[in-house]
């Protein structure tokens, strides 16, 4: 009964308004701009669904979030360089703080 109704009838109500009625329609639609819209038809056959459209094949729609094919040599060279410079700066900082310690002690 109410479950399988004719889409056509529901359609008439939603169909394109005449010129004169446009502003009114727009106003009514305004309240809905950020929420789920009413469908123009009440029901549709299974072959009209998004799933059928994709033939149940959704693999190509999603991909892994990581990629490791891009120039991983570049990355590892850069990494080595940064590890080196971090080491130097850490040593430098340690050296500086060693340098300061005796002075403080003498004060």
């Amino acid at each position: 009964m109410a479950s399988t109704t004719e889409p056509k009838v529901a359609e008439t109500e939603q169909s394109t308004p005449s010129e004169q009625q446009k502003p009114e329609q727009k106003h009514l639609a305004l309240g809905e701009d950020d929420e789920f819209e009413d469908f123009p038809v009440d029901d549709w056959p299974a072959d009209q669904t998004e799933a059928a459209q994709r033939n149940g094949e959704t693999k190509h729609l999603w991909e892994e979030s990581w990629d490791d094919d891009d120039t991983s040599d570049d990355f590892s060279n850069q990494l080595k360089w940064v590890v080196g410079s971090l080491l130097v700066s850490t040593l430098l900082l340690t050296a500086l703080s060693l340098d300061f310690r005796p002075r403080r002690r003498f004060r």
């Binding site: 009838v9 529901a10 008439t12 109500e13 009114e24």
Partner: peptide, 17 residues
């Protein structure tokens, strides 16, 4: 029911502005 509901619509229909 949908035909009946259409008679209670507060907007004009496409065929009859």
């Amino acid at each position: 029911g949908y035909l009946l509901a259409a008679t209670l619509s507060p907007i004009a229909s496409s065929g009859n502005p």
